[in-house]
Design a protein around this nucleic acid. Structure first.
Lengths: 146, 146
DNA sequence: CTATAATCAGTTGCACACAATCAAATTTTG
DNA sequence: CAAAATTTGATTGTGTGCAACTGATTATAG
């Protein structure tokens, strides 16, 4: 009756930890770039959705970003305070709150446009690796959505 | 002089976002399992290091987990309050604080041992994909450490 | 040996994340 | 139509993350 094997508990053998560490590290790298346009990372990905769709409900935004209203509500109020978005109830369904870009929010897109390329440089992956990573992460998300 | 191209700003073309979303989703999946042993995810990865090393300084722990003292100090105080670890200053260097497992912290390892396998099932990747993912994330972290 | 620099944990303040709960509006059902 | 269930965003409380700063201790340069 020897010592049981704890290899699966080695930090090195974890799958989640490098994901978690990598994600935080990239966000840390984003910070100085995002500071320049006065956005946090979470605000930035919310703006990404708005730049694509012009206007979305909080619900839809939450689905896109996998975030709930407890995170989004205060964040959207800050974006509104900065004059980047507007928030108003839907006339069709008063429960829904429609978030839309202002002119100022719209024009911020131009300043954000160089950001992705600057970020790509520092991760140091080649095109194939990026492809693989993207595919695997997509598969994981699909598996976990059930 | 047409509309400039904003493809790089599409949420779908982001590399960081799926990493960030995936990481949070896995941690969400961990939660019910970790609740059973009364640990949060961050507390869990701190315990992983302690189960490997028996005792570490806060500084070393921070290096392992890429977390700073602002995150670790309150977290370690909670683990201490639960009776899983002890915290004492190093005699050799009074600036360093040594974190060590208690008997109770040690024995929690047995209950944690089934956790990784349960998690592996729900991510739904095959062995090769896990390998690839692991390799790519390690490479990214190395690139970014400079 | 002493003034200066570096190291380390702790504290503070801000910004998420998210579970749990709530309240208002809408949809479904009998 | 009216009661019940569902949907939706807001609120509250807990737990991170992290930058900036503090204070104590140790290392180092002159």
């Amino acid at each position: 009756m020897g010592e049981p094997c704890y290899d699966s508990l080695l930090l090195e053998n974890q799958l989640c930890f490098p994901l978690y560490a990598c994600s935080r590290e990239i966000i840390r790298r984003y910070k100085p770039l995002l500071d320049a346009i006065d956005l946090t990372y979470t605000q930035y990905i919310a703006m990404l959705v708005l730049w694509e769709r012009q206007s979305v409900t909080v619900k839809e935004l939450g689905c896109c970003l996998f975030l709930d209203s407890g995170t989004l509500t205060p964040l959207l109020k800050k974006l509104e305070a900065k004059g980047l978005i507007t928030r108003r109830r839907s006339e069709a369904d008063e429960r829904s709150l429609i978030v839309a870009l202002t002119q100022r929010g719209q024009s911020l897109r131009e300043q954000a446009a160089q950001l992705p390329e600057q970020m790509c440089q520092c991760v140091g992956l080649d095109a194939e690796e990026k492809q693989q990573l993207s595919r695997i992460l997509r598969k994981m998300m699909e598996q976990m959505q059930r």
